[in-house]
Structures are given as structure tokens and as C-alpha cells.
């Protein structure tokens, strides 16, 4: 049994409209809905149960911004007040000039179209586009590395419980990995072979996110590949 999922026992793959159980609270858990006294899944997902409750983790889906999320986006337009950022979501991100840096002088050409930035979602409530910021430390332009795109629904699996998966990959491969909640991941490993390996590993996690024992399998795989390379 995989440690990461031990508090919840994985039951099965559920599909939209499938009955999950009786409602214990008036508000439906995420990715489910309540009709009468019953809870149904709203998505294709994995159903986890423990004694008290259950959760459904979707297997696919587009990214919906949430306040506080760190995302990787691409500058696609500049206007007199802000940059427009593609954040791999149905909603384009807006990055106002004042959310970029404390120094007011060099705002206008701070970013160019095509630049990739690490940003934080500051405001979003569906009435207008999400407002981003790159003011905090560590945020801003990402200037080199390999970009890997995966389904945003798989990002939590890539991170793992308390970061177990991602820190294992970083440690085993010695590479730097920046994760955007919106499904974009930046890998910097120093050389092409390593970056390619990490990209393949990330893709494998995306494909097999619903299987058990994944962290161990991935670790073995990395060791095998890194070992082979050393010969």
C-alpha cells in the first residue's frame, strides 16, 4: 500500500452521475454534487474513502485559477496598463504594471511578448479575469530550461503528499523543477539527457497518476536510468 494515500483508501474509478454515497453534509465535496440525500460524482475521477468521508480526484480537466496559486504563464500581449498572460486556462491572466516590481521606472519593457513568467494569482472571482502578480521573491521571468505541459489535474500527483514525489525526483536527478498549478512545469538539469529524463518521468506520472505504488516505481526507474547513464 502506498504511504501517500494511506489516510484515504482508494476505491475505484468513478464516472459522472455515479452514486457515491449518502450525503453527510449539506455542501457537496469538490467534483461531486448532491441530489436529495445522495452524492454523485461529477467527473471521471478516483474515489477515495476513509471512515468519515470521501473525495473524488479528477483524472482530467482544465485549470481554473484560485487565489494564491503559483502558475507559469506566457506573455501574449501588452497594453498601456498591463500584460496579458496565457495561463493555460479558459481565463487569461492580467498582470498590471504595478504588480510587477517595486521600482516604478522600468515598467514598460519589463516583460516582452513570448516571455514566460512565474506568477501568483492575486484576485479571481469569475466576474473579471484573474489578476496576477510577480512582485514576490522568486517570481518573475523564467529564462531557461525545458517546459513540460501536463494535465493540471495531475499536478497534485506530481507534487505528492507533502511534496514527497517532487522532492524525490529533485533529489534523485539533481535537477531543479518549478511547478505551475496550471499544468506547466519547468525543468533545469544542466544537460539535455537529464532534462529529457525528467520530462519523461513527469509524463509517466501524468499517465499513471491513478495507479498505486507510483512513487516507488518512479524512484526505481530513475535509479535504473541514471545508473545506466553512468556506465
Amino acid at each position: 500500500m502506498d504511504k501517500e494515500e494511506s489516510s484515504f483508501e482508494r476505491k475505484e474509478i468513478v464516472i459522472p452521475g455515479q452514486w457515491i454515497g449518502e450525503a453527510t453534509r449539506p455542501v457537496a465535496p469538490e467534483n461531486t454534487f448532491i441530489e436529495g440525500r445522495n452524492v454523485y460524482s461529477a467527473v471521471i475521477g478516483l474515489l477515495y474513502r476513509n471512515k468519515k468521508s470521501f473525495k473524488v480526484v479528477p483524472l482530467k480537466g482544465r485549470y481554473l485559477p484560485r487565489v494564491g496559486d503559483i502558475v507559469i504563464g506566457k506573455i501574449i500581449d501588452v497594453s498601456p496598463l498591463m500584460w496579458v498572460v496565457d495561463i493555460n486556462s479558459p481565463y487569461k491572466g492580467l498582470l498590471p504594471y504595478e504588480k510587477v516590481s517595486r521600482e516604478r521606472k522600468k515598467m514598460f519593457n519589463h516583460y516582452e511578448v513570448g516571455d514566460v513568467v512565474l506568477a501568483k494569482v492575486e484576485v479571481f472571482n469569475y466576474t473579471s479575469n484573474p489578476i496576477l502578480s510577480t512582485k514576490e521573491r522568486g517570481l518573475g521571468k523564467l529564462s531557461e530550461g525545458r517546459l513540460v505541459r501536463i494535465s493540471p489535474a495531475k499536478i497534485p500527483r506530481l507534487i505528492g503528499r507533502k511534496g514527497s514525489m517532487i522532492s524525490m525526483i529533485k533529489k534523485e536527478t539533481g535537477s531543479e523543477i518549478v511547478i505551475g498549478k496550471n499544468g506547466l512545469v519547468l525543468v533545469r538539469g544542466g544537460n539535455w539527457e537529464k532534462e529529457n529524463l525528467v520530462a519523461e518521468i513527469i509524463k509517466k506520472i501524468e499517465r499513471e497518476s491513478h495507479t498505486t505504488g507510483l512513487t516507488n516505481r518512479i524512484q526505481e526507474l530513475i535509479r535504473e536510468k541514471m545508473g545506466l547513464k553512468g556506465d
Binding site: 506566457k74 513570448g114 516571455d115 514566460v116 531557461e144 530550461g145 525545458r146
Partner: peptide, 10 residues
Amino acid sequence: EIVATIRKNY
């Protein structure tokens, strides 16, 4: 499509 500069460079 606007291609990310970082991707082009890579």
C-alpha cells in the same frame, strides 16, 4: 501562435 521564448531557445 506566440511561442514562448524560453521554448524557442530550448
